[in-house]
């Protein structure tokens, strides 16, 4: 090997650096990402941010409208400070939106990648099993599973995870099937590498991006489903502050304090739309043509 005349090794920025740069040039997506980050920070620092105890009610000051002295966003049906409850509610609501999707991402991606890479008989077995779950609408499935498992946070997480495994597996399978037939995978096989090595080195890097973006888009759906479960009394139990549960308990006051009742819904709306816009931005940033 000849000595190279040029100096230091030129290393190009990787794919993800390019994606981040493109993402940063999209003002709408950056705005949405900032909102998501704000919500996450709000959830993390809830005890320091909330002006009052979210569980402490005052029976004399029930259902006060927003703007009441001492209660910026009013009080709920038990006289608890709405602002504090909404801030604290971000904790459990975001948790219920993100955790099931991430557990489903691990399981679904594993199933989908194995099915897609193996093909044939293994693929049919795994994917037809997944298809069984598609026979039910996701809301119905979540409610049925949560109902069967019994109420509680852990059971709702399990139910929601099971709801999201099949769609993620399906996306993972289709992306992997596409990558499997690429020449670079053939070349890797031709070099004598085993299936696991090829999946690790050549498949994962090319499929995780799209799968991850798809999973991100499910976080909003998951949050709404989790809120639905709480609303039905299958998820979070009172008095824990959760946006879905708050919608439920405040609904009786819809004619007397409509603005107050809408507040938890507004939070769910802001969160889900921010996640969706951020995901869209990420998706287009990842769509780099050579």
């Amino acid at each position: 090997m000849s000595a190279s005349p040029a100096g230091a090794l030129v290393r190009s920025p990787g794919y993800w650096v390019a994606v981040l740069r493109r993402f940063a040039r999209d003002p709408v997506a950056i705005g949405a990402a900032a909102v998501v980050l704000g919500l996450i920070l709000m959830a993390v620092f809830a005890p320091w941010l909330a002006p009052q105890d979210p569980l402490q009610g005052m029976t004399l000051k029930r259902l006060r409208p927003p703007g009441t002295e001492g209660h910026l966003l009013g009080t709920d049906e038990l006289g608890r400070d709405m602002l504090s409850r909404l801030i604290h509610g971000a904790r459990i609501s975001l948790f219920m939106g993100i955790v099931p999707v991430f557990t489903a991402l691990l399981a679904g991606a594993a199933i989908g990648i194995v099915a897609g890479y193996a093909g044939g008989w293994t693929n049919s077995l795994l994917m037809r099993t997944m298809d069984v779950f598609f026979a039910f609408p996701s809301v119905l499935l979540a409610v049925a599973l949560a109902g069967a498992l019994g109420p509680g946070i852990l059971n709702s997480i399990i139910a929601l995870t099971l709801v999201f495994v099949p769609p993620i597996a399906r996306v993972a399978e289709s992306v992997t099937t596409g990558v499997r037939s690429r020449d670079y995978v053939e070349a890797a096989k031709a070099s004598g590498a085993g299936a696991l090595t090829i999946i690790r080195k050549h498949v994962l890097g090319n499929v995780l991006g799209p799968i991850f973006v798809y999973a991100m888009s499910l976080i909003a759906v998951c949050m709404i489903l989790a809120s639905g479960l709480s609303f039905l009394g299958l998820g979070v139990k009172p008095p824990m502050p959760d946006w879905g549960l708050m919608l439920n308990t405040l609904r009786t006051a819809i004619y007397t304090q409509p603005l107050l009742c809408a507040l938890p819904g507004v939070m769910i709306f802001i969160t889900s739309i921010s996640f969706n816009i951020m995901t869209d931005g990420l998706r287009s940033a990842m769509d780099i043509k050579a």
């Binding site: 020449d183 085993g194 090319n206």
Partner: peptide, 19 residues
Amino acid sequence: ASLNPRLTVAESIAFGPMV
């Protein structure tokens, strides 16, 4: 299509020998 877009040139070539 026969080069993995996520690997550098050197990584692509070094893959076989490492296997």
